[in-house]
Design a protein around this nucleic acid. Sequence first.
DNA 1: CAAGTATTCAAGTAACTGCTTGAATAGAGC
DNA 2: GCTCTATTCAAGCAGTTACTTGAATACTTG
Lengths: 222, 222
Amino acid sequence: MTEPKAVLYEQLARMAKALSAPARVEILDVLAQGPHTVDRLAERTSQSVANVSQHLKVLRGTRLVDATRRGTFIEYRLAHPGVGDVLVSLREVSERHLLELQAAREELTRGKDVERIGRRELMQRMRAGEVVLIDVRPPNEYAAAHLPGARSIPLQELSKRLAELPLSKEVVAYCRGPYCLLAVDAVQLLQRRGRRARHLPDGVLEWRSAGLRVEAGEGAAA
Amino acid sequence: MTEPKAVLYEQLARMAKALSAPARVEILDVLAQGPHTVDRLAERTSQSVANVSQHLKVLRGTRLVDATRRGTFIEYRLAHPGVGDVLVSLREVSERHLLELQAAREELTRGKDVERIGRRELMQRMRAGEVVLIDVRPPNEYAAAHLPGARSIPLQELSKRLAELPLSKEVVAYCRGPYCLLAVDAVQLLQRRGRRARHLPDGVLEWRSAGLRVEAGEGAAA
DNA sequence: CAAGTATTCAAGTAACTGCTTGAATAGAGC
DNA sequence: GCTCTATTCAAGCAGTTACTTGAATACTTG
């Protein structure tokens, strides 16, 4: 008999091991924004296709991701919203304990301090009709999932589409999550144009992991 | 410049890597029950002292555990309650996705099916004074942390101390968590003696991770 | 200060990991 | 059925990991 208790720890470790390569964490992080094909993943993560394929195999082995064929491509996606929760939980504990991570995060946002808004305040002001929430990610990510009531205005189009945003309301921008700079750039751009704007540091992952609802559809096809 | 974004993923992976060896997960699991010295850890996990020491070094490197000298021993403990949350979160996702883990868990509890009680019902019935909650772990673990209102009756002493449990009340037993069999054995013993008894599959880790309060002290010294 | 011991270090090993390169496979679409 | 191409496989290499054994530290206690 192989100690049954040993099996339990082996399996927990196996799951952790699946998350123990930077390349795989990045892949999961990208997949959290929506389904991707192998070579779009390779492109987004600057890795070879073969290598991404091998990492995906590992992730499929622990059933963290699912694959479905779609035309000539194979589309990979997170197997379950709960996978996102682990990512968020891993990030929380890492930020609390790893000084290097805190340093890297500060480095990332150096000179990009913008005023933030929290989930609760955002929801209150949304209900009161006082703010417009914009999703500045690419349209396909918006289509895969976005925050309720958010409008899709990709960062690249923002300066041309300013007229869509009522002057009377404050603008709140979000993107992929706390490590993504799209929304920060959006807020800076809006402020330079004389708008009141704040940054919501959540992405759909964080939002869902906090137990809140997200919407899908209404955008470009994946 | 080393890509700042790459650093973020490296750090997340570093944290996951710390959890990617079965021996380390087991060590953390034991530490979650209270502080331990290196050689008690070695004993509990059936590993060599030198090896445990090396694993502890890794865990200290990611600041998951802290060490403090206490007499001639060095006592290791989880650095932060949040570390327990990661363990719980890792376990949740692993149970959902890894069939092998589900199988191992069934194997572990085969022929030991006992009636369970949930957190909510337990709290209601505790408030109503209808149940006695007993902690069947060794006294030092009880002393390190236990559920509010629980009485310490180690499994070994249970049959001798039955008189302490009022016949009028149902007994609820808990131990280290869902993979620990102490409480299951306790419930079986109680039932053989004609008592109404149920099993709470939580340990202090799960209880705390659900946002509930735990108590410390009032027991044998660590 | 000396002795004792809990803990850590150091060296050596077998096994594994992540990445590359180049070839094979397996569907879709005509 | 044939071609095209997205994806996977296979082999190989440099670097790392987990464990053992045996010796060295470093702290307390007397």
